[in-house]
Amino acid sequence: MAAGPNEPKSRYLQYLEVVTGSLEEKRRYRQYKARVKRLPENYRTAVEALERYLMHFGPADGAGAMSMYEDLADLFEQSVADGTPIRDIFGADPVEFVEAFMANYPAGQYRARERNRFTSAIQRAAGEDTGQDGTDR
């Protein structure tokens, strides 16, 4: 039922993706979860805690989020292979670590648009010229 890389998708698959989201993103997410499941328990616990945080504050779009999660799995798999202690990964402040980690990924279209809208509104309220035509309301 799945179309190959060079085959056009059937109307059914196109409709299914409209309703459920990208099938490719779902496949990537399942692969990521399988990688996390293979980590030692303490590393897996740390990744799952990071994942919860990222679900709330990380990139909102599927592609950006999946790249971030795959990089997270890479980081922890390499840390396990190198024998890096969890505290050495995170440092003294886990929130500082995750915020720096997230800064490497796009915020997602919705969040970026809302951040820009918020910043523009504050600039207008402060009487600063935003250089925009005011259509961001």
Rank of each mutant, 00 (worst) to 15 (best):
Y12H: 03
G4M: 09
H56W: 09
D88G: 02
E96Y: 09
T135V: 06
A34E: 12
Y43T: 02
V95W: 09
G127A: 08
K33H: 04
A2Y: 08
A2V: 10
Y110G: 04
E99W: 02
D61N: 15
F101T: 06
M68N: 03
D88V: 05
Q31T: 10
N6V: 11
N6M: 13
R38N: 12
R28F: 05
I86W: 02
P8Q: 09
V47I: 11
E114W: 05
D88E: 15
N116P: 01
Q14M: 14
A81Q: 14
E17D: 01
A100F: 03
T130F: 03
A100V: 07
E41N: 07
Y105R: 02
Y43A: 04
T84F: 05
A3E: 10
E77S: 11
A103G: 15
A121D: 08
E51V: 05
A34C: 04
K26W: 03
Q78N: 13
P59R: 02
N6W: 13
Q31S: 12
E114R: 14
P5V: 12
Y29P: 00
E77T: 07
L13R: 11
D129Q: 04
L50F: 11
T130P: 01
E99S: 11
A121F: 07
A81W: 02
Y15V: 11
F90S: 02
